[in-house]
Write a protein that binds this DNA or RNA. Structure first.
Lengths: 199, 199, 199, 199
DNA sequence: CATGAATGAGTTTTCATTCAT
DNA sequence: AATGAATGAAAACTCATTCAT
């Protein structure tokens, strides 16, 4: 019996994690206001006071989830910015790779993604941060002259974020497209435009 | 009897319209849940029972605003789809023109736009409808072979919606870009891609 | 029927006043914490939301009562300080009169008195203010040399407040002594001491 | 067996005493309702179940403190009542001595004093008991005719309690006056009155 | 002797909504 | 066309208290 270790349910961390994950799901499905603390704890098989044992209040658990999303997302984008001065062919690959990474993260954390990217008051801020990251990554990685003169990099970055956002909701999360494929298609459109140049 | 003859529709319609426009602003600024009926009527200089004289409930006035947005938006996109079989140069103009029309509408109706495009539970649905419209418009207007083979029109349309959405929030509504200019830049990026082909 | 006037219960001021007076009684009997908003409204034949129609919260109605007490009390003590430079015999009368005024007010407002003098967090402050008023009144009214050299007026004033406080609870509010009589006895003790000088 | 022999009463009694003294301080500072069991145990470096190991509940620990105050106080006042039939000069001294004793006890036990004399629902009762004690002491100690005829001993005793109470809060506990000095001043005022008889 | 984990029972507060006039 | 007054229903949150170990 000695080797059995801790009894299930007697572990506070477990309860906390359970609440956190259920809350993520509730917030993702119903939004902040329509998610009741009572529903979260009910699904967890716990009671309301227990909730307040682990989280200061409803706002706090929500913010914790938002923060989780932000940190994960930005650790991803930070990793993407490496080795400046890169060749044409591999740049396209690099962007694809970066996008695929983001999409994979979104796919694996759909609740967190919905919360941080679509539900929170700072979703806007989050997207703007992402756009800035993207802009910086591109600017630092890419040789001058690689992109068309006319391109306003800021507009471009924001557009890319818009595309990510939209395709995440419409294609990725419903399971219609895989992260890699989605990334490739975006890069294809974006780098080359949609006009058939052979025409 | 002459003295009884109120100007028809005068006061009632006025109050209703007032409530509607204040509500639009409140919903746009604070979202559905954080907008209180009490604040709406206070700003209107009216009382709560009066609110219920004109609207069945809070949900109803919100939906009315959403509907207003939807109708305006889709009357715009419907108008855009005309005269199939179009020349290269003017197609680009046509798309630009269509986008500029949408942006102009957004710019003139920022509250409605925020509600219909960013706040409502059916914002998603709204964007999907818009994407479908765009897809249809392009498909019907454009000669086969005009676009690259590889392009998934659905992906393209959704992407365009994402770009519209994002640039509306970050550039248009803050007044950083004018509708026409924004439309041009999008078309430029999208049709030609971002790579400098002269390189 | 026209002359009947307002129907009972349709008057908000009436409800507010009712709540205020019931609250005073509840606070006086049970103290702040053991007084529930629910009991107040129940006794008033109203519901909880109505309470919040008239008072911001439980704390606010309590403070309003405290303030009511304070204002009444200090308008009394301010009135007492008149016509400086006064003769021996009438000074004693003056003090008696002032005390009797305070006691009368306490007797007529027992709930308010209990709240402001015995229950509130600022009861201490209130008593200190009263002591200061008393000290000032005496100092300003009385010729030098009238009081014994040795008397520390501050100690004296605080003592008087202590006596007022205690006799209010033990004699006045239970109805064992009338305001006038109580005032006389205090003055008698205080001015002359308790030792029989004829002995 | 030698190794099992904990020092008797060592840890348990220590924890109990610690809780008791912290509780006294918390109750004194914040009052009964605003003192939380959780804060007491936190300050003690213990947990809530431990609290219930030593005290039946929150009410019980509070009552224990009240009782502690009561017993100490009344053992003091009982000691004061000795040797009836006493001379003029030494009576005054005796009263001064008794008061000084009380003040000393208060000064050395400020938390207990605040609880027993100012916080508890039975603070009233406590003061009344004290007044009775004082009345009895005086009545039994003093020759007939020593006090003025007019003096109602009950009023006098209550007044004295009021003075003690007030000066304890305003002068003694803040450290503005020492027990002995305070006692002397009270006796001086009380026995002789405040009027300058030489005037 | 002590605790990690949990809860029963309440309390304040809010808000959309309605009744009677 | 409008309102003064009121409420039903629910939500977040708190705290003393206990169980199992």
């Amino acid at each position: 019996m000695g080797q059995r270790g801790r009894k299930k349910g007697s572990n506070g961390e477990q309860s906390r994690a359970l609440l956190l994950s259920i809350a993520a799901n509730e917030f993702a499905e119903n939004g902040y206001h329509d998610t009741k603390v009572s529903s979260i704890v009910k699904r967890a098989g716990l009671t309301q006071p227990t909730f307040y044992l682990y989280f200061q209040n409803k706002e706090a658990i929500f913010q914790e989830l938002v923060e989780l999303f932000r940190e994960n997302l930005f650790s991803l984008t930070r990793k993407s910015r490496l080795e400046p001065g890169i060749e044409l062919s591999s740049l396209s690959d690099r962007i694809t790779y970066g996008l695929a990474g983001i999409f994979s993260f979104f796919k694996e954390n759909p609740d967190l993604t919905k919360i941080g990217f679509y539900e929170s008051a700072i979703a806007e801020e989050m997207k703007r941060e992402l756009a800035i990251q993207i802009e910086e990554n591109l600017t630092s990685e890419v040789q001058n002259g690689y992109f068309s003169q006319a391109i306003d990099m800021c507009i471009f970055a924001e557009s890319l974020v818009g595309i990510i956002e939209r395709l995440t909701v419409t294609k990725l999360l419903p399971g219609l497209k895989q992260p890699n494929r989605l990334a490739e298609e975006i890069v294809d459109i974006f780098l080359n435009g949609i006009i058939n140049k052979n025409n």
